[in-house]
Design a protein around this nucleic acid. Structure first.
Lengths: 327, 327
DNA sequence: CTTTCGACTTTGAACGTTCAAGACCGTGGA
DNA sequence: TCCACGGTCTTGAACGTTCAAAGTCGAAAG
């Protein structure tokens, strides 16, 4: 193993001082053209790579971002995070940052982890997922001046911080339109109980589209916790109505799968999230642009880190409908 | 924001020198009981947390491990990595390490990334997944004295490095036994083309178990690339044989799902990996103990890092059969 | 000719930690 | 009495980088 190549090695080789090498790396405009080339040749010849620990000690910046990895809560939806993570890592690397993972049991625990990570690793920023009403984590971070971006908007105050989100309502609207176009008139919605931002948004998209086509949504929706059994139960309930729906828009692939089983193929069903399960069983589903969302998160975060301190930015992405055999 | 608390702040507060504080943290046995307590109180009172960048600069160790996150190649199997990652992060945190992600297009690209990560972040070690015959990555790392552990064994030379793996043959053996116990005698195997370590191992388990029960496996297996359509095709082929199988053991949930569709419910099917899809459709499947595997990977790696330089260690874990409605 | 200026470059110090070496002190053996 | 020794603690230097300040040089201005 060759001995370590530091900035001093490069400086000696290029016959300049340490600081000049540093300037070539960080403020090239301060260095004369010819000197710069000489230094760059030395860097290449020696295979010099900057030591980030040393830089971090001086500057306090680590080039490290952190994301929480959650224990796949519901198997069926877990792969969403997976794809998002890959996108984040990829986009971060392109911008010279790396992604570090952490786990946490709940929001309180997560805040303790923030504290540790910031103190010990000097993390530059966080990407939060799964934000909820009045998320304590965002307040904690904002109070301390730590940069962060959320994937998912803060439902109470949209401009409180920067975020990237997918337009859930547009997703269910697309699904509903698709069903209307293929001839359905009685279209049911199976979602989560009212109160969750995402869930309400998905219901809204269905409701508004129905009304826009002068179809009455009244009585055609049900809410239950996420799950296949719950989806089946809701579908059965709706199917026994006098004027039963001929199609369902669902807030998740789990619910959709349940509905599909309960309806026994007689009913059109559209799910949400385009999970592997949907791909496997031919379920038409709303697909979130995860790689794109991840890239935008990194964009916003790095923009903040690079000292663009004024204001926050919001990005709302359109999902797309992946049409398969179920609708 | 309070001013920074360093080792010097603590030292002043506890009326000792910097080095004594450092010793309390790293070599407590060198410090007198009473002094130690005083320092510990100061640490708690001031909320001191060590600055890892500074430590890293002196010691060259970063407390950072890296894992590659792959673009979910086949949606249906992607969640395996997801669960493994969560286990790794959790186990690493418990040992005072953090997990960093990176992406790579292929093995060559991955080696370039190794080089960068090592030079810039001083990474302590790697966890590699998806090893293949004659994996160039492991040679590159070993040559440079970089510590690593693989999840998946090196099929050519088992003791070349430390690894953790799941006993694939045992998994298909369990599946085959289950089918024999429930009365099946003609049991087919649908796997991948010969040549991949994992695939051959899974076929072996089926074959040996058949022979052990004096059942003839000849002609009852098919190989195809992973996929639902391929699974269906293989199943159809086998089902049109004169003395057709009444049950299938499959090398993946994708193949199993295809087989299930082709057989139309008349045939028992067991998959492999216990993916969300299996959970969703009631497919009996072989489940890998991922959190456990992750924890063992971290164990081995940290053991190496802590300077246990002699020899390598191999860990082979037993999978378990998750019984659902398909068999 | 001297001064001023700007472009470029160098020097010393600092970031927070640990290593290596040495200082201090009380005990016990010669 | 003297010295060696082990236990405990302190001091100076070093890791590789960047900041802040100062130095050098040639050209333009007075």
């Amino acid at each position: 193993m060759a001995e370590k190549v530091t900035i001093a090695t490069v400086a000696a080789h290029a016959q300049v001082s340490r600081q000049t090498v540093s300037n070539v790396l960080n403020s090239p405009h301060l260095v004369r053209e010819e000197t710069r080339r000489r230094v760059e040749e030395a860097i290449a010849a020696l295979g010099y790579r900057i030591n980030l620990a040393a830089r971090q000690m001086r500057t306090g910046r680590s080039q490290l971002l952190a994301v929480r990895i959650e224990p796949t809560r519901d198997g069926i939806n877990g792969s969403v995070l997976d794809r998002f993570l890959h996108g984040l890592t990829f986009a971060a690397a392109a911008a010279g940052y790396r992604v570090m993972l952490y786990t946490a049991d709940d929001d309180g625990d997560e805040i303790k982890t923030f504290d540790n990570l910031l103190a010990s690793y000097d993390l530059d920023g966080f990407v939060l997922t799964g934000t909820d009403h009045g998320d304590v984590r965002t307040f904690w971070l904002a109070e301390r001046g730590v940069q962060f971006v959320t994937f998912g908007r803060p439902w109470d105050a949209p401009e409180r911080h920067s975020w990237v989100d997918v337009d859930n309502a547009d997703g269910t609207a697309q699904a509903t339109r698709r069903l209307i176009e293929t001839g359905h008139r009685r279209i049911g919605f199976i979602g989560w109980p009212a109160g969750s931002g995402v869930g309400d948004d998905r219901r809204d998209g269905w409701q508004r589209t129905m009304k826009a086509h002068e179809l009455d949504p009244a009585g055609l929706d049900r809410g239950a916790p996420d799950g296949i059994a719950q989806g089946a139960e809701c579908a059965r309930e709706l199917l026994t109505m006098p004027d039963a729906p001929t199609a369902f828009v669902c807030a998740s692939d789990s619910l959709a799968l349940g509905a599909l089983q309960a309806a026994g193929g007689r009913t059109a069903v559209i799910g949400f999230d385009d999970t592997p399960v949907a791909q496997a069983i031919g379920l038409t589903s709303v697909s979130q642009p995860l790689p794109d969302a991840a890239a935008r998160c990194i964009d916003l975060l790095i923009n903040h880190l690079d000292g663009n301190p004024v204001g926050t930015t919001q990005v709302l992405l359109k999902p797309s409908l992946v049409i398969r055999t179920s609708a």
